[in-house]
Nucleic acid binder design. Structure first.
Length: 203
DNA sequence: CCCTGATTCGC
DNA sequence: GCGAATCAGG
């Protein structure tokens, strides 16, 4: 298979959509995820909203090739996949650690008994079903949550909902997700509990 | 071990 | 330009 315009177009779309290289490869067929990644790079669209700060200095490998030292390789690395790209200072909004929240609401926002308009989101476990440690952890990190809206969520943001969806005071955690999971570290803790733990706690 | 993207380098 | 092999990491 070759990279026809159509295939490249689909690749671009899926990639910017946040699809993984393997998913794209599967969709396209006839190519491996490596091929996709390679193409992505060649197209120069590696970073997709990537907040990952590229390491400024590429530390040379410490591989000691016994005879490599004298190799008369008189050529600069033509490897600047990054053209004259002006350094982005990133004065960005940054993240003021202190989320100066004037509201002195109690630690845990009261859960509503009602089911608003939409269908209920991930189960909001009742407090007494969660381990104290996990609960404390959540209360802790929720203060630091990014408080994203539905539209702001990405594959890399914690999708744990907080508050009442019927209220303006509703948001998603938004902290970096635990690899592979839909939630951040703390919320994974309350979302995924070992059966045994639940049972033990229940009785 | 599953997965992710990143990079290298012979083709 | 292409992509397998490899690297680095969650």
């Amino acid at each position: 298979m070759s990279w026809t315009d159509e295939r490249v177009e689909l690749l671009k779309k899926m990639w910017s959509d946040g699809q993984s290289a393997s998913q794209i490869a599967k969709e396209l067929g006839g190519v491996t995820r490596n091929a996709v990644i390679g193409k992505v790079h060649r197209l120069g669209l590696s970073n997709r909203t990537n907040g990952a700060p590229v390491p400024p200095a590429k530390t040379e490998e410490v591989k000691e090739k016994p005879a490599a030292a004298a190799a008369p390789k008189a050529e600069a690395k033509p490897r600047p996949a990054t053209p004259p790209k002006a350094e982005t200072p990133r004065p960005a909004p940054a993240q003021p650690a202190p989320q100066a929240a004037p509201e002195t609401k109690s630690a845990v926002p009261a859960r509503r008994q009602i089911i608003p308009a939409g269908q209920p989101l991930p189960p909001q476990p009742s407090a007494n079903e969660i381990s104290p440690e996990a609960l404390a952890k959540v209360n802790e990190i929720e203060k630091r949550a990014k408080r994203l809206s539905l539209m702001e969520l990405t594959e890399r943001t914690c999708k744990w909902p907080v508050g009442d969806p019927a209220t303006p005071d509703f948001w998603f955690c938004g902290l970096p997700v635990q690899a592979g999971k839909p939630y951040c570290d703390a919320h994974v803790g309350v979302a995924f509990q070992p059966m045994s733990a639940r049972r033990d706690r229940k009785r």
